[in-house]
Amino acid sequence: MRPTTESGLAVRAHHLSRRFGDFTAVDSLDLDVEAGEIFGFLGANGAGKTTAIRMLCGLLAPSAGEAWVDGLPISTHGEAVKRRIGYMSQRFGLYDDLRVGENLEFYGGIYGLDSAAIKARRGELLERLDLSQALDRPTGSLPLGYKQRLALGVALLHRPPILFLDEPTGGVDPVARRAFWDLIYEVAAEGTTVFVTTHYMDEAEYCGRVSIMVAGRIQALGTPASLKAEHGARDMQDLFLKVVGT
């Protein structure tokens, strides 16, 4: 296990809020995520998941409240927080006109890795993500499943203790999704905390704990099994509909 914070919390949010004009996207969010957890952050479209993740990643300033990532307050230690997180969004954030290797080199560069370190890490990641044969291919020509693994590679480049995945498997077929989750488990087994959002309720089942967000607030929080029992739900899909449905 990687040493994280004294408190053992990878992510902690306290009354974290974000307003856009008179619309409150995230409403006083309180959340503790333990180091090493695979935490599923669920909610309907527009429930505030992406806004919350963006605040935790330092892309967006909170309107009120505070959050700690790896023990560091995001309001004052934004840059330090960025070194400790890996981020992968549903849009992947890859340059389609660059080759696979060049994408990794670029992101390695902006994380301040020197060229020897980038080269070593690149080889290691390509091997692990089963992308070695795609090294020189233009990223734009890759199938979605490959891009998705490459985006994960980018997020893992600097060996962050915490990984934020915002709908990482959207639009990807079941085979690629399962392969992707195998990778997530591997990463988590090494002690990395995984904070993930998804619309696939079968994936929610893969998480250690999940929260379900409705209109900017967390309406349910616990392990999939305990939540299903609590709400008398058959499966996660059923649970989700029960919690989100009015």
């Binding site: 330092g58 892309l59 840059e79 330090a80 960025k82 981020y87 849009r91 890859l94 340059y95 902006i110």
Partner: peptide, 14 residues
Amino acid sequence: ETGTLEQVLTAPVQ
């Protein structure tokens, strides 16, 4: 537009 800006800004780059 392509979403790479978001990715870049989660890195410690000013």
